[in-house]
Computed example of a mutant assay.
Amino acid sequence: MPKLAAFPKAYMQELCKDGTMSVSEWINLAGELEVDGLEWYSGFLEMEDHENWTRFRKEVQDQGKEIPMLCCSPDFTHPDPEFREKEIEKQKYWIDMIHELGGTYCRVLSGQRRPELSREEGIQLAAESIEECLPYAAQRGITLILENHYKDDFWEYPEFAQKMDLYCELVDQIRHPNFGVNYDPSNAILAGDDPIELLKKISDRVVTMHASDRYLKEGTPEDLRKEEVGVEGYAERLQHGEIGQGLNDYDAIFGELKRVGFDGWISIEDGVEGLDQLERSVSFLRGKISEYWP
């Protein structure tokens, strides 16, 4: 049966930029949630102090939870080899981080969709960089998970392998026992793709999932396209919604995951309107998991 984790989507600014929330405060808040674990983020300000790693692991365990996966954002599509090598070293550092936190999954991405980058070059650079990290991950028992990503909170350009065809081609390039897919249905919608069509193409490679629901506060997907490059983070019109109330068909999603024998972690990206919203999303997903994995 899949397990549920929570990610502090509502508190990224406080935890990663201005420091107005401590990681311990987030752990205590999340302790009230009926989840099995907390998805971690490499950019929490307090993670810069290595001594905090084991402390936070214990604090989470004291809440009866674990830290299964680490969200981080390597940028492997930069044309400069020295830049990419530094990103590979960062990824290895993040692999060490999740290993010490007690988890087994570490996110990887392709990188930013820079205007000068060709399709062939982007896939090659991303695949080669990920493959260079895999032996290091395998030595530590970590699985690298490639997300069908939209855009990191602190990136200027969207994900290179955002579109379904590019993403699937990149996934197909990499065959390793310590490599899998982190599926995010909302990101497929933002890419203009059908999330169920994407899932059916990659479901046998899915080992973790991000559960979210998105909607556009105003305008159209075409308006979003015009706003997603050249500025840091997400466009203003893009909103995270309560799970089960947005555009995703969770019956179709869970039906396909059940069909392929999925039993991994589902991490909730929600709660931007408060902990009550996050609790409702947890309840919705608990109900769906019980329905499909009775």
Rank of each mutant, 00 (worst) to 15 (best):
N248P: 00
G19W: 15
F76L: 08
L144P: 05
A161G: 14
L275P: 07
A235Y: 04
G122V: 12
A6W: 15
S42Y: 10
Y250P: 01
S110D: 09
V23C: 10
H210L: 03
L29M: 12
I142G: 04
G192Y: 12
P177A: 08
C168Q: 07
H210K: 04
K201H: 05
S129E: 07
V282P: 03
L45Q: 14
S290T: 05
L198Q: 07
D49H: 13
L146M: 15
Y157F: 15
D263N: 15
E218K: 06
V60Y: 04
G31N: 05
P195V: 05
G19Q: 15
I123D: 01
I202Q: 09
Q239Y: 05
G111R: 13
V229R: 12
K217T: 02
L285K: 10
E25H: 13
G230L: 09
I145G: 00
S129F: 12
E34F: 08
D96G: 03
N182F: 04
I196K: 02
V171E: 03
H50Q: 12
I130D: 05
V272G: 00
P221S: 03
T143Y: 14
D75I: 09
I123T: 10
V171K: 06
V260Q: 07
R114M: 11
V229G: 01
L134N: 05
E25T: 14
R175T: 11
D251M: 01
E14I: 09
D276M: 11
S42I: 02
E236L: 07
E256D: 04
K226P: 00
R84Q: 09
Y234D: 01
E51L: 14
T77N: 03
R259H: 02
W53G: 01
E100F: 07
M69R: 08
E59K: 14
C106M: 09
P68H: 12
D249M: 11
T20W: 11
A188V: 03
D165C: 01
Y215M: 00
Y93I: 00
K201A: 09
L109M: 14
K200G: 00
D184S: 04
L275F: 13
K9T: 13
H176Q: 08
I130K: 08
K92R: 15
K163V: 05
V108Q: 07
S186R: 04
A191T: 06
I243A: 01
K201Q: 12
Y105E: 10
G103M: 14
F254N: 08
P74Y: 14
P221W: 07
H210F: 11
T220Q: 04
K17W: 10
E227H: 06
P177D: 07
F44I: 12
M97P: 00
Y167H: 03
F179L: 07
I95K: 04
Q239W: 11
Y93E: 11
K65R: 12
A188N: 02
W155Q: 09
E169V: 01
D194A: 02
P195Q: 11
D263F: 05
T208C: 08
Y105K: 13
R214Q: 09
I174N: 12
T220I: 04
Q173G: 00
E89P: 00
P81Y: 13
S22D: 07
W26T: 11
I130H: 08
G244K: 04
F179Q: 03
E242S: 02
G64Y: 10
L109C: 14
H99M: 00
P79D: 03
C106K: 05
R114D: 00
